[in-house]
């Protein structure tokens, strides 16, 4: 059964006709072609598919498209601020926060959501906020560092 939904996707109002049971992850990847959001487990355990739904991080592998009418969705493809990389994207490159990069989009979306709510997080707060996002390559240390550096840049921008 198809359903028409109206969503805002990465800032653009969009009408979509979707089977109601289609998962948001599959909707993004297969039907819209935004493959930046990754499937790591399909069961909500790894965080690779994290997107922002109405400003909150969710596992897109656990959300049905039928529930999305009126939703505001931001994916990794919408993380840039205009033509500029988001500070957290820059910091991941500079600090070595990505190795294979498969967990990176989900990790970045979770980090953005943390920094939106808490502009000056402690290492503990970062670790707690990102603990649902698994990474098998980095050992996490450089990710924590990258989030700290991004937070500092965002604070400097706001102050300046």
């Amino acid at each position: 059964m198809k359903k028409t939904i109206h969503v805002t996707l990465n800032g653009r109002p969009t009408n979509l006709e979707v089977p109601a049971h289609r998962l948001l992850l599959d909707l993004l990847r297969d039907e819209i072609g935004l493959t930046g959001t990754k499937e790591g487990c399909g069961t909500g355990d790894c965080g690779a598919c994290t997107v922002l739904l109405d400003g909150k991080p969710v596992n897109s592998c656990l959300i049905f498209s039928g529930e999305l009418d009126g939703a505001d969705i931001v994916t990794i493809e919408g993380l840039k601020i205009g033509p500029e990389l988001h500070p957290v994207q820059k910091a991941f490159i500079q600090d070595g926060g990505a190795q294979c990069g498969y967990c990176t989009p989900g990790m970045l979306m979770m980090a953005k959501s943390l920094l939106d709510e808490n502009p000056d997080p402690s290492d503990e707060e970062i670790r707690f906020a990102l603990s649902g996002n698994l990474c098998r390559c980095t050992g996490y240390a450089k990710i924590v560092q990258a989030v700290q550096d991004a937070a500092a840049e965002l604070r400097a921008k706001r102050a300046g």
Binding site: T75, Q89, I93, G101
Partner: peptide, 15 residues
Amino acid sequence: PRVDGLDKVTGTARF
């Protein structure tokens, strides 16, 4: 920094 870093942080890296 990684030469493929930009690709990896913007979601354009194709797996």
